[in-house]
């Protein structure tokens, strides 16, 4: 049983006879119950382990590369590739070598393990920042719309509808040339602009679902009597929103987060594959795009990023499913 230790310590009850009873008395919040269930779910534990592994790989990318002795963008086409642009060491023509565990990139001779690790980093960075931003926007607007009702609700709902009807791919396609024109001269500025541009565009087109969900939940919660009890007591509206309503919205928010991270990983890779994502730093989608031409001769080049994306997205999705089950009171065991 999950025991909030702190509360036991602060308990004024000092009678030693009473203490064992008091221990049993500590209650568990719905969130604690959900986490408990998650711990007993094998799929969730395995998926979480995979996700943690990917996060660790991404965070430790510089450490791992230096340990293995590879470097990002260190290839020299004249030295590392032969006359057919294929790498002179490692696959596909030669055996495995620790000098390049995943081989070298044809044409440039850049190390692919370094590219893969930094690609994971890019992917998770973009996905997590976009998730964070879209969750904050979605929750804030959903709360305000649902709680205020009236004209503010109608305005926000209209904005949500407008954004939902706006085509995501077109927006992304339009952004690439704009950024290229604006920052084309300076590669560092372009990379930064692309990085924040992609986060912006992913956030811009993804907060609406959560906002709608939260609005609907708030519409039903605000009529519950505990909200009216808070108002009778005189709890300020802001406190009602964040202390009374928000804790009841944890389940949909957590589920939305756990399902939008893999969606963003896929979207980032997809945009990079189309050439309208990141170009200035390694990205799985970009590698897949380049590798697709070499699949016959050099399959590993393509497999590495594809398996990376696949594993990460499947793990995140399964974890998301488990989280949703754990938070769903109807599956309470």
């Amino acid at each position: 049983m999950a025991m909030p230790l702190q509360e036991m310590v602060t308990s004024p009850d000092t009678d030693p006879i009473e203490t064992p009873d008091a221990k049993q008395v500590a209650g568990r919040s719905p969130t604690q119950i959900a986490l408990e269930r998650l711990r007993h779910d094998k799929v969730a534990v395995v998926s979480a382990a995979i996700v943690v592994l990917f996060v660790a790989l991404a965070i430790l990318a510089p450490v791992i590369t230096s340990l293995v002795g590879v470097e990002l963008n260190a290839g020299d086409p004249s030295e590392d590739t032969d006359a057919f642009n294929f790498p002179v060491i490692g696959p596909p023509d030669n055996g495995f070598t620790w000098e390049a565990p995943l081989g070298l990139e044809p044409g440039t001779g850049d190390d692919l393990l370094a590219e893969w690790l930094y690609g994971a980093r890019t992917s998770l960075e973009v996905a997590s920042i976009s998730t964070l931003l879209s969750t904050i926007i979605g929750v804030a607007l959903g709360l305000v719309a649902g709680f205020s009702r009236g004209w503010l609700d109608r305005v926000i709902s209209f904005v949500i509808d407008v954004f939902l009807s706006f085509p995501f791919l077109l927006g992304a396609l339009a952004m690439a040339p704009i950024l290229l024109n604006r920052f084309g001269g300076d590669p560092e500025a372009l990379d930064k602009a692309q990085f924040f541009g992609i986060i912006f565009i992913l956030t811009f087109f993804s907060w609406m679902g959560l906002a709608r969900l939260i609005r609907g939940e708030v519409l039903s919660l605000r009529e519950r009597e505990f909200v009216q009890a808070a108002r009778v007591i005189g709890v300020p509206t802001r406190t009602v929103l964040f202390k009374e309503l928000l804790p009841n919205l944890i389940a949909p928010i957590v589920v939305s987060i756990s399902l939008s991270v893999p969606a963003f990983v896929t979207a980032e890779a997809g945009l990079a594959y189309l050439g309208i994502g990141l170009t200035g730093r390694p990205s799985w989608g970009q590698t897949i795009n380049q590798a697709s031409g070499y699949f016959d001769e050099y399959a590993l080049y393509l497999w590495a990023p594809v398996i990376g994306i696949m594993l990460l997205v499947i793990a995140l999705n399964l974890l998301g499913d488990s989280v949703r089950d754990a938070f769903d009171p109807k599956t309470r065991r």
Binding site: S29, R224, E225, A229, A230, I250
Partner: peptide
Amino acid sequence: IQLIFQDPYSSLNPRHT
């Protein structure tokens, strides 16, 4: 002036102790 509610199942916030 305080209010006691009809439904004890919805008048207490399920997420608060």
